Simulated scan of single mutants.
Amino acid sequence: MDLISSLLAFLRVAETGSFSVVASERGVTQPAVSRQVRALEEHVGMRLVQRSTTGVVLTEEGRNLLPAARNLVEAAESLSVSASPAQARPTGKVRLSLPAPLALHICGHARALLDSHPSLSLDMVVRDSTSNLIEDGLDLEVRLGPIDDSSLISRRVGMTSAFLVAAPSYLAGRPLPRSPQDLRNHECVVYSRWGKDDTWWFEASEGQFSVNVPCRLRANNASAVHQAVLGGNGIAILSHLMVADDLRTGRLVSLLPEFPPARLPLYIVYPSRRNLPLRTRVVIEFIAELLKADPAMRDRTAWPRPASGAPDAGRGQNAVGAALASVDAAGERR
């Protein structure tokens, strides 16, 4: 019996409550996973799981075994690094969850990571809401905003930067907003993630302030909001990663550049720092360096804006041009 492989199967069955789910994740048959768990039961001399009408549940012995099983798996994964750091190679799959804009950005640069580490693979879960890392079988997740879960390890890797945008077809025949308060007289497309999502926050020299916006169309996915705005359905706040090309080509127009949307901190979170597998550490460093290379995503970097005064089209476009130039510069350095 391969003890580590059986322990891994047992841990995932415990997390998912399903032999079939684990089999699908591993690309094997459901009986193969059952045999691995049964072999572990024979090895320890006790029943660890039992089937119920709602799935697979752990026995008391199975629950008691979980901490030791996790420790053994973590120790085994770090063994090669401890024994021979110079020869260690990241091997295996890293399963990570990311918001849609960042997932698209990373997909555009993943080739460099995968070419550098031929035995490494990525399984990306694209979602704009937070996950339960253990239940969803995730190694790490990129999150926006403060981290409230004290059980997770978090590493701050940058800040979001976004534009207030609309399509020319929507703006045609409508008065341009001259302050965030004017958005109350417009149709807004809301990107719903958490909390009161029809309250938009902006930055000014005096600090951050909020405006409640009307909404007739909302979506919990940034790509859907992006398409809705391109279709002329209203005004939205979207990541610079999604709209940079649209602003260059004129498919979208940046509004109120002197009142940029409030920035949010970006964190990478994962369940445990102890014996963190080399493959996971490599992916964490890759994401951190990728974001660091983008001036618009660095911590404490001001988003370009006009110096002062009332907004006008020319000065607004100058601010947009400066912002896009910073994005281009990041791409050239990569």
Rank of each mutant, 00 (worst) to 15 (best):
E285I: 01
A14S: 15
L102S: 03
V243D: 00
D245V: 03
L104V: 11
A228I: 02
A219T: 02
D294F: 01
T53C: 00
A68Q: 12
L104R: 15
F209V: 07
L65S: 04
A219M: 05
T199S: 14
C188F: 03
T16L: 05
S121G: 07
W194F: 09
L183Q: 01
A32K: 05
S84K: 10
E289Y: 03
D2E: 13
L230N: 02
P85M: 09
S131K: 05
L8E: 15
V327H: 09
G27V: 11
S150L: 12
I284R: 10
G62Y: 03
P214T: 08
R315C: 03
A110P: 01
R263L: 06
R315F: 01
A329M: 13
A9G: 06
R184G: 13
A228F: 07
Q87T: 08
Y267A: 02
P118M: 06
A14Q: 10
E203G: 01
S254E: 09
R178D: 05
D115A: 13
S116K: 07
R281C: 11
Y170P: 00
L7A: 05
V320R: 12
A262H: 06
S119C: 07
G207V: 11
S205E: 15
D299K: 14
S205V: 15
G232F: 00
L122M: 13
L290P: 00
D312Q: 10
N318G: 05
D294G: 00
A86E: 15
P265H: 10
